[in-house]
Nucleic acid binder design. Structure first.
Lengths: 338, 338
DNA sequence: TTGTATGCGTTATCAG
DNA sequence: CTGATAACGCATACAA
């Protein structure tokens, strides 16, 4: 490996001089600067950032922890995060918790020892508080993205889940639906609670009774126990519409309905939070509330970098990003009205 | 920051003893081991891997460079890579070249200075050879994934593009099509060349004339200049089917046809290489050749780790992964036969 | 079983 | 404008 000493020897200067030209620090005569630069080129020298990190106590690495790398929302978010990081001279370490606390913990341990300069964190659930506490112990700055955690004070980039869910629900109501099922994420995740609140709020506004028996809960990426859905379909007064709290759930639900021969939207209307990536381009079918996923990532990283630079002197910042309802074809009037 | 010296002082041992219990190396009396461990717990000690990397000359970090982070093929590949890396105790640094050589170069420079132990590399084009050469200069092991580069000898995980493309084409032929357009990726990318070869091979096998005027070339992620497509649609004898060389192209083409009021498959059959993620779950519509994307990533990382461990003593390995044709509904008999 | 000296590649500090 | 020295946190080699 070529080091600054190799360069120094060849250039007949000290290692410090080489270091200075690399970092453009201190005054250096044009002559030696050119000479050193030339030799660095010749020898294909590349600074060792490990060594630099050790002395400077910073790695210029940020970490992004998401809960589902196969979900287009998170990959688009990742894209935004990567762009921002790259733009500001940071590298990005990715992690995928799969919505699992155990994987999340392993990942937190990993980044702790890697000494990243900061973390953009999408917590798997409220229980992530414990992992966040570890970050605090070790003074690693972090920004929460997409989800918040009760009791944890931090910079955050969140969606307007409540308003978005209310709009989607009201849209169904405007179509004539009064029996609207909610297939939600787990109650331990803030977005699920907020979407639930928005749903309920819309119902109340229109004096539609809230019925717990048509509220279902699943993990955002694990739609396994279909019996629950089956149960509400077999009710004497089954729902005529389903509000799925995220895209994966919506996709699974529609597949399930298709297998049962239940047409969407003829027999059942379906809307959901989050767009479905390529699917909506291939066939603009699903009516959704789209979140600005790229912005989540981009602004999250920016916030994080500002936090790192300002240490604890900046006051806490929370950004709320609105979602945008896109009406397509998966919801229509309830069948009994036709 | 807590260091091994802090632990050592509290435990009345030397730093080396602490280092030994951390690494389970050398013989240590059960007593001191326990004592040291307890104190590490108390102080929330976490080893500084930057320092460790510097002395051990390895970072336990691998890097994955893909060309499109929004393409489900690559995110699934990434998922496999991450699983493998995690399983073998490596961290994964992600990069996204966007099919652009300039971004690829920046990324290569970055990882070079980060001193990752190895790279899983999906080259943007044949011109990536230059960047690969830089890796060789600095003795960074790498494995090529999805695409190969002429003149570059390396371990690789590739798809059976030729056979897959031939199957897809033959399927169209079996449906009765004889005018089949190919909307391909750039000729500077190995997969595009191989898919083209497979297409041509199938045509020849069935004595169908090969017509260059219905071969189009686009970047895999940039389907902009639609005039080309328009031109072949207006031909006196337009194609009755289109073979899109990747998923993004297929999605764009179908959107374009839809806007023109051309129904798929009634007026035009469309098939493509690569599945379309959620879209195929939401509506199993597109007939495709699916590649085992997860395996690409998982096996790529395994190959890379084996290469790192064996230095240059292992012989070169090339893994070819077959694709699987899934017949859905986007292709049918040519309209003039109905 | 445990400790001491040294070095990994770089930068901060202070001296010249 | 340039250089010598120490330090970052840890592990290797050797000694005790």
């Amino acid at each position: 490996m070529i080091t600054i000493y190799d360069i120094a020897k060849r250039a007949n200067v000290s290692a410090m001089t080489v270091s200075r030209v690399i970092n453009n620090s201190g005054r250096i005569s044009a002559g030696t600067r050119e000479k050193v630069k030339r030799i660095m080129e010749e020898l294909n020298y590349i600074p060792n950032s490990t060594a630099r990190s050790l002395v400077k106590q910073e790695t210029k690495m940020l970490s992004l922890l998401i809960t589902d790398i196969t979900n287009p929302f998170f990959t688009t978010l990742a894209r935004g995060a990567e762009d921002a990081a790259h733009q500001f001279g940071y590298k990005l370490l990715f992690g995928n918790s799969d919505e699992k606390l155990s994987k999340e913990k392993e990942y937190v341990d990993m980044v702790l020892s890697t000494r990243v300069d900061g973390l953009l964190f999408a917590p798997a659930s409220d229980a992530s508080a414990e992992h966040l506490a570890m970050l605090n112990v070790h003074r690693i700055p972090f920004v929460l993205v997409d989800r918040e955690v009760p009791g944890v004070e931090a910079d955050m980039v969140l969606g307007e889940n409540r308003a978005g869910a209310a709009s989607l629900t009201e849209y169904l109501v405007s179509l004539g639906h009064t029996r609207i099922a909610l297939v939600n994420g787990l109650g331990t995740v803030s977005t699920a609670r907020e979407r639930h609140a928005g749903y309920r709020e819309a119902l109340e506004r229109h004096r539609i009774p809230y019925d717990e028996s048509i509220i279902l809960e699943y993990g955002y990426n694990r739609f396994d126990d279909l019996d629950q859905l089956d149960r509400i379909l077999r009710m004497p007064d089954p729902p005529t519409a389903i509000f799925a709290a995220n895209n994966m759930l919506a996709v699974s639900i529609i597949g399930y309905l298709r297998d049962k021969g239940i047409g969407v939207p003829e027999h059942m209307s379906v809307v959901c939070f989050e767009d479905v990536g390529m699917a909506s381009k291939l066939d603009p079918f699903l009516t959704v509330a789209v979140q600005p996923a790229y912005e989540f990532g981009y602004r999250g990283i920016r916030l994080l970098i500002e936090r790192i630079r300002s240490k604890d002197e900046m006051e806490r910042r929370v950004i709320r990003l609105p979602s945008d309802m896109i009406v397509r074809k998966s919801a229509g009037a309830p069948p009994d009205r036709l």
